[in-house]
Design a protein around this nucleic acid. Sequence first.
DNA 1: CTGGGGAGGGGGCCC
DNA 2: TGGGCCCCCTCCCCA
Length: 485
Amino acid sequence: MEISSHQFHLLEQLNEQRKQDLFCDCNILVEGKVFKAHRNVLFASSGYFKMLLSQSSKETSQPTIATFEVFSPETFMVILDFVYSGKLSLTGQNVIEVMSAASYLQMTDILNVCKTFIKSSLDISEKEKDHYLSLSAKSTNSEPTHPSLYRSRRKAKSNPRRSCSIPDDKANTVNENSWSSYGSYLSSEVILQRAETQLSKRGRKQGSMRKRRKHLGLAQTRDFVQYKSNKAERASGGCSTADSSHVSRVREEAECDAENAADRDDYGYNHESEVMPKRWSVAQLEQELSRTPEFVELKAEELYTSMPTILGVMSSWNEDDLPRMRFKCPFCTHTVKRRADLKRHLRCHTGERPYPCEACGKRFTRLEHLRNHFQTIHQAGKLICRKCKRHVTELTGCVVQQGTRRYRLCHKCLAETNFDSIPDDLDAEHSPVSSTGNKRSKWALEEEQKSDEETVEEEPYNLVVRHVNDDTPAEVDEKVKPNLR
DNA sequence: CTGGGGAGGGGGCCC
DNA sequence: TGGGCCCCCTCCCCA
């Protein structure tokens, strides 16, 4: 026979003992402030303490002292309260730092809750994705102002990119490696269950999980997966075909949340905490879905500015047994050496894509990607015949245009292609085709793209051939059959 | 069904 | 610190 309240009372007693400094055998010094706790509890709660206390377990007569300078006493207080009560007092202000500290202390459950919290409060990528998809559903090829971003050759993928995983397996591992001893009726567990339910549901719907890149294997836990960047990827360019199911999914999750909210109190849900901070009504969803990429950037900027100074000190050790200073992503286990690299990495979580291609509208996370894209797609920068794959020069080949896409054909392959006629509506002056494959500045490219849009996007399925002679744009334009590839 | 290639995305690292 | 380059991986399309 199992008395369900036993675990709760046990933890309650331990918490009382902690508050009264009874039997506390571990002192934790955080930026000068001393916290007292029980080794057993810390050992059971944190991978970090597990390691630490394992090493000092032989000397049980003396109280263990742990010192931390990488997070604030307030942050540790939140974590310690959670350890002893199962209630995590997250707010928009402390979530990042709590997450960072939890990462440091290897408390994966708190990490998950923090991620859920952030995801629920921001939910940038999901909304942004849905926004794009809703646009995608509306936009057609005859709508040049909504560029080909929305009709990318990549279909709306149910499976994300390599660095993006859906936390299905994470949901499964939470209960294995962690703190089920706290009892399923405790609020943390309830929260986690809900987070798991929510995430796994999303994961099931979004499709298969992706293996992480092997060089990311240095992560602390193998089962700790990323879950955001897939959304980020789809949010801003990777999606194309209309997929209204994404919109309905957001609604569905909101409704699910609303349902869950009703019985939260029954499980001692912490009212002070904001673990599930937002309940989206349909009206709110509609409003959110109408947000723009600027919204993403704004939110991303908020995230950046709200980040603590130290995002994480990794637990990896070098040969000298000294901890390596690395910056840890608050969304995943990825660590980088430089803060700038972390900022760059965070874009895959926030969905921020600050570099739009003005020729096709596709947005990129990096300028270099935009540049590569433009040179390849819109400038025919590769001096390779698309058909025979041979190297072509300005003399031996020419640039072929299809919509906003340009590529090169050698004269031989060009002659083998059946051309219909030369369109007259393309003014040679507007030709953005450069005879050189040289790199240009972004702004120079944009100037070219504007004219490109005006002239070409009107007939996106026309294949236009432009002969390129040195610095003079093509004078001869020919229309050939569409969909040549 | 499968392999090749194009395009895009992300990480490491140099300048 | 940001820009840029290189490399690798993944996805998708097509033959």
